[in-house]
Computed example of a mutant assay.
Amino acid sequence: MPTLNDNLLKLENNYFFYQIEQTLKDFKIKNPNVEILNLGIGDTTLPIAKSIYLAIKEAAFELSDPNSIRGYGPSTGYDFLKEKIIDNDYKNLDIKKDEVFISHGIKYSISNIIDLFSSNNTVAICDPSYPVYVDSNKMAKRKIIYMPVLEKNNFQPQIPTEKSDIIYLCSPNNPTGVALNYETLKSFIDYAKKNKSLILFDGAYFSFIKDKNIPKSIYEIPNAKDVAVEMRSFSKNAGFTSLRLSYMVIPNNIKIEDTCLNDLWLKYINVKFGNLSYIIQKGAEAIYQDSGKKEIKETIDTYMANTHLIKKGLENLGYKVFGGINSPYVWVKTKGLSSFDTFTFLLNKAHIATLPGSGFGSVGEGFIRFSGFAKKDTILKALNNLKKL
């Protein structure tokens, strides 16, 4: 008789984002005539760029033609997309094609790469942070050390107080919306070099960084290619949340127990996964065309204008607000209520949906997250409702 993974059984019954989604559905059933003003949404609300649509359409047509039909593609992704990524996103950083792996989405990369490591590893994770970091390690019963991300430290994570084998970092951070500065990243690279640790760097929101003094890639820091894996997504900047595509960089320099991590990941994906969609990769390639770059910039500018609107509107209403400068997320201090009670209060009284900070970790208690991915008219209605409270 088979037995189950009891570590999986011990996880919370409802994944945080699913739980919020169900709460909003229940509210809508009870209040069918009420418009929910969703400012907690982490999903995109603008359509994909025309350049992407046309590239996908052309690629689909290719597959309908006997002269250009394609079968299985490379498990690491097509070179045409890797070359665009290197030339545009890693210019002058000396990243090689065999170090880039095209993936089904950043969640796929985050939750699967940890399988390369034994359950004996100690893992350091920021608190608050994206729940997948925690849950994917709880499944393997790894020891987790939490690195508090506090207001008094300007929401820059502090070096682990215990020796950690694997460290998760995200910049700009989700949910605080605050990007990690050069000094913070350098301190973690130095720590990893000294302690022979590995950094898993989530750069899903790198496209939203506007401050030229904030690194967009961890590889801008000396020695990072010896200790850091970087993951990035096309979901937020290019609207690929329904198309699903991302990429991960694993430098050949990284060795774990004399084994090249890049080689081990290649072995892993060849055993567990197949190739990725040619059509979707052609869509992603279009992001790097001149027309695609212009369209993507317009998309990002729209989301950041929405974020600025939320940030200023909340500040004018007397809320203490953080983030929202290099990220589409605004981290807001609650007024006397817990995170979840504030979420409930705003939903019931102002019909505004946010995300309670406590869902991202215990240190997130006392905060809620607002998102610039909401539409402008939704934001304006929400701010107007808040004024009436």
Rank of each mutant, 00 (worst) to 15 (best):
L317Y: 14
G318D: 12
N306Q: 13
H308F: 14
W331I: 08
V332D: 01
I325F: 11
I296V: 14
I325G: 09
G357T: 04
G292T: 03
R369C: 12
T334S: 05
N306R: 11
D290S: 06
K335Y: 01
T334D: 04
K272P: 00
G361F: 06
F370H: 04
L347W: 01
G283H: 02
K312V: 14
Y288S: 02
G274H: 04
I300F: 02
V330W: 06
Y319F: 15
L347S: 01
T299G: 01
D290W: 01
I280T: 13
T354H: 04
T302D: 09
I368S: 06
L347D: 03
F370P: 01
G364P: 07
I310R: 10
S291I: 08
N306H: 15
Y319T: 10
N275S: 14
K333V: 13
F322Q: 08
S291H: 00
G357W: 00
Y329A: 09
R369A: 11
W331F: 07
V363I: 14
K320F: 11
M304W: 09
I368K: 04
G336I: 07
Y303M: 08
Q289D: 10
L346F: 13
A286Q: 01
S327V: 09
T354V: 15
S291T: 09
F343Y: 15
S358V: 13
I325K: 14
A350L: 05
K335V: 06
G364L: 08
G359I: 02
P356G: 08
G292W: 01
T334M: 04
I325T: 15
